[in-house]
Design a protein around this nucleic acid. Structure first.
Length: 259
DNA sequence: ATGGCATCTAACAGATGA
């Protein structure tokens, strides 16, 4: 089976790109981020016509996540309160997390906060959000052996994931962000892409500005993290750069995991 | 240090993203 993740940067602006891509890549599941639309305005029919069942959680203008699957997901939940309760309610205001079970796998689709600038309020929110995510996974792991987390993490863990040297004050590469993500991985998650590809120069996001893509000035910030038992089942994990070459693309490109 | 580019709302400029 194949699972994909793609930050589409507005589902309404990217509808044709996504339908074209899905026709060429009929994955079993696709996890989307930054849909940027309330649920009642989500363009469902083009994707339902391709045979997908849709689970969506969006809001006006910002954020928003969705999972499309060829077979309906079981036990779909939105946000963190479903597992952690009302104490984490404030972290569910922004629509950044949706989960469901496909076959024996819990798929958790995430749009991690960007953080704006190191030291800002949004940066503090990003770190807190990651702490809540860690708690969520700690609980989930107690009952669910097979977990696949994917999405836009807005963090590049290592220098080989970024086209240039970074400073500690660079958002998406700061030590605190990396430690927060590493603490999650330390619960027992493996970077699926790195199981197959150790070398530098593979990215999933390129800045629209300054000709980032043509010069391959990118960052690898979209990830698949798998529990060890699932990692053993992984057959491949690849980045498909092609949609980034299309006209008016998302600034992110899809990553595809094969189990 | 700035701005570069794209998306949103809907104010056609300002907020946000990464």
């Amino acid at each position: 089976m194949k699972i994909a993740t793609w930050n589409v940067n507005s589902i309404r602006s990217r509808q044709a790109h996504l339908t074209n891509w899905l026709q060429a890549n009929p994955v079993d599941v696709i996890c989307l981020q930054e849909t940027k639309v309330i649920d009642s305005d989500f363009p469902r029919s083009p994707f339902e016509e391709l045979g997908y069942h849709l689970d969506i959680s969006g809001q006006k203008s910002y954020n928003g996540v969705a999972i499309f699957s060829k077979i309906p997901l079981q036990n779909v939940s939105v946000g963190f309160t479903s597992i952690l309760g009302n104490k984490v309610e404030e972290f569910d205001e922004q629509k950044r997390a949706i989960a469901g079970i496909f076959e024996d796998i819990l798929i958790l689709n995430l749009y991690v906060p960007n953080g704006s600038e190191v030291g800002s309020e949004k940066y503090a929110y990003k770190l807190q959000w990651l702490k809540v995510l860690r708690e969520y996974l700690e609980v989930a792991l107690k009952t669910t052996p097979h977990i696949c987390i994917c999405g836009d993490f807005n963090i590049a863990l290592e220098s080989r994931d970024i086209y240039r040297q970074t400073k500690d004050t660079d958002i998406m590469a700061s030590p605190q962000e990396r430690q927060s993500l590493q603490a999650i991985l330390d619960l027992g998650f493996i970077d699926a892409f790195r199981k197959f590809t150790p070398d530098a120069g593979h990215y999933t996001w390129w800045d629209y500005r300054r000709g980032g893509f043509p010069q391959n000035r990118g960052w690898r910030i979209d990830h698949f993290y798998l529990t060890e038992n699932l990692s053993d089942r992984a057959q491949s994990c690849i980045i498909d750069k092609e949609p980034r070459t299309w006209e008016k693309p998302s600034d992110h490109t899809p990553v595809i995991l094969e189990l």
